[in-house]
């Protein structure tokens, strides 16, 4: 079997060099298009690395260029997480998407995993040419993302008999007062947290094509009520939505690094069903 060619390089970003990986289809395979990965944030990004690499390889093998770029302050890119801003991440991601289109001749499909879906969504709002999107178990809103991160921080206090430790509300107040908050080794600045707090997975007007994959721990039957509501909202905004529940572990939060082959199977299939878009 042929293997995709992998190019590793540093791309220019608004505030520093960004570590990038470009998976290229093998020479004997007809090119189908391009995909840009928008990773989850903080520890979920690390936990998701293996699945992201497996998926990128699977797509490259059937003709897709796949770009994975670490955001500023994340992974092997320049900068500290504490200095990252949402506006910077968005500007860098748009710049990378345009570079990928130039490089490959194809407008990239935006592949957003978890909180990366919020970034993909923001990119589609900014650029009406980026209208093919694929979500991996998207985070519904920035508020929910922050609440879940903060809850990990206060887990020990949840059932404390005596009110002692700080609550999520108190940590949120720190952000509102302009202070950073450290969560599991990541320093969330006030600016980044407040920007994230305002994010939602709102469909851009004008329509496009969206593939929505959701993981269920047990046998996958239906989409969750939350995902069903999301799918309906995107359809109402004129998007053609292909939604698929997948049976498998929440690989971005479990302790062990796990693989969910079914997710790769469906994702690969769903991308094949998208109409090709040249620039």
């Amino acid at each position: 079997m042929s293997t995709p060619e992998l190019a590793a390089f540093f791309a220019p970003g608004t505030a520093g060099k960004l570590f990038s990986l470009l998976y290229c289809p093998p020479a004997n395979i007809t090119v189908r298009g391009a995909v840009m990965y928008l990773a989850p944030v903080a520890e979920e990004m690390n936990k998701g690395r293996r699945m992201a690499a497996l998926q990128a390889r699977a797509w490259a093998n059937v003709g897709w260029f796949v770009l994975q770029q670490d955001s500023f302050g994340c992974g092997d890119s320049a900068g500290e997480f504490a200095d990252a801003t949402w506006a910077g991440w968005l500007a860098d991601a748009l710049r990378a998407a345009h570079w990928l289109a130039e490089r490959t001749g194809h407008r990239p499909v935006l592949w957003g995993a978890r909180a990366g879906a919020l970034l993909a969504c923001a990119m589609a709002h900014q650029d009406e040419l980026l209208r093919q999107v694929l979500f991996w178990h998207p985070v519904a809103s920035g508020k929910l993302l922050l609440q879940q991160l903060l809850r990990l921080k206060v887990a020990g206090n949840l059932f404390a008999a005596e009110p002692g430790g700080a609550s999520t509300r108190q940590w949120r107040a720190c952000w509102e007062a302009g202070q950073g908050v450290e969560i599991a080794g990541y320093e969330w600045s006030s600016a980044l947290a407040l920007a994230c707090d305002a994010l939602a997975l709102t469909p851009p007007s004008g329509g496009g094509q969206l593939a929505w994959l959701e993981l269920a721990g047990g046998p996958a039957s239906d989409l969750s009520p939350a995902a069903q509501a999301g799918v309906s909202a995107w359809r109402a905004a004129g998007w053609a939505v292909d939604a698929q529940p997948v049976s498998g572990a929440a690989f971005w939060q479990v302790v062990e690094i796990v693989e969910v082959p079914e997710l790769i199977h469906y994702s690969t299939q769903m991308l094949e069903n998208l109409p090709a878009v040249d620039i």
């Binding site: 508020k143 609440q147 809850r151 887990a155 949840l158 059932f159 969750s224 009520p225």
Partner: peptide
């Protein structure tokens, strides 16, 4: 407590609600 956190996270994601810790 960690299991409770995991349950709350899944409840929020599946049912589309936000739960405050108080």
């Amino acid at each position: 407590s960690m299991a409770v956190v995991a349950v709350l996270t899944l409840v929020e994601e599946r049912f589309g609600v936000t739960i405050e810790d108080d």
